[in-house]
Simulated assay, not measured.
Amino acid sequence: MSTQQTPHSQSCDRIRSNPKFQRLARQRAVLAWSLSAVVLGVYYLFIMLVAFVPGWLHLPLYEGSHLSRGIPLGAAIIVLSWLLTAWYVRSANTRFDSLSAEILQEAQA
């Protein structure tokens, strides 16, 4: 076996050692874990409501309503998940993609 590195592995090493790449990886991880924690926290709170105060979810939304509180609350959780996903996609397509392009340009130089 040869210990000589291929051009591809040298390029990968240059990218990994770039401070911009390390910042990019850290920012993406922090954003992804933060958004995941928010979603999991919201779902956990909803399950706690179902477990400990189910009667509150069965109450009508307002006087004379046939719609219970649980339905719009569940829908709000779904919409929140969509919005957080859109936030991540927007961040990935703006900040992260431009930084990735800079890193690749520096690695090719």
Rank of each mutant, 00 (worst) to 15 (best):
R95Q: 14
V53F: 04
W33A: 09
L61R: 11
P72K: 04
H66D: 13
L61Y: 06
L49V: 05
P60M: 04
R28I: 13
H58G: 12
L84A: 06
R90W: 14
S91F: 12
L35E: 06
A75S: 07
R28C: 08
S34A: 15
Y62N: 07
L61V: 10
W82T: 08
V89W: 11
A29K: 14
V53T: 15
S36E: 08
M48C: 15
L83I: 07
R69A: 08
S68F: 08
L67I: 15
L35W: 01
E63D: 15
W33C: 02
L80Y: 01
S65M: 06
F96V: 04
I103G: 01
W33H: 10
E102Y: 00
L49G: 02
R95V: 09
N93G: 12
V53S: 07
A32T: 15
F52W: 11
H58S: 13
G64Y: 02
I103P: 00
S98C: 03
S100L: 13
L61G: 04
L83F: 08
Y62E: 11
P72C: 04
F46D: 00
P54T: 00
L40I: 09
P60Y: 05
G41V: 06
V79A: 11
L49Q: 04
V89E: 09
A76T: 00
R90V: 13
G41Q: 02
A86R: 07
V53Q: 13
F46Y: 13
V79Q: 09
V53C: 03
S100W: 06
Y88H: 10
A29Q: 14
Y44V: 06
S91G: 10
V30C: 05
Y44N: 09
H58T: 12
G74K: 02
P54L: 11
V39N: 07
V53W: 14
V42D: 00
A37E: 06
L59G: 11
L57I: 08
E63M: 02
G70K: 06
I103W: 02
V89R: 09
A75P: 00
G70Y: 03
L59E: 14
A76D: 04
L84M: 05
R90P: 00
V79G: 01
L35V: 15
L73F: 02
L80F: 03
A101C: 04
D97Q: 15
L67M: 12
G74Y: 03
V79N: 05
L83A: 15
T85D: 08
A32N: 14
V53P: 02
V38S: 04
A92L: 15
E63R: 09
V50S: 13
F46R: 08
I77C: 03
P54V: 10
V50C: 13
V53R: 12
P54Y: 10
V38N: 02
S68H: 08
L83E: 10
A32Q: 14
M48H: 07
W87H: 12
A29V: 05
I71R: 02
E63W: 06
A37T: 15
Y62S: 09
W33K: 09
L84Y: 01
A101V: 13
A37K: 11
I71K: 06
L80H: 01
I77N: 00
A76Y: 07
A29F: 10
L104Y: 14
P60E: 02
S36F: 12
V79Y: 05
Y62C: 06
E102T: 12
H66Y: 02
R95N: 09
G74T: 05
V39F: 08
A75R: 10
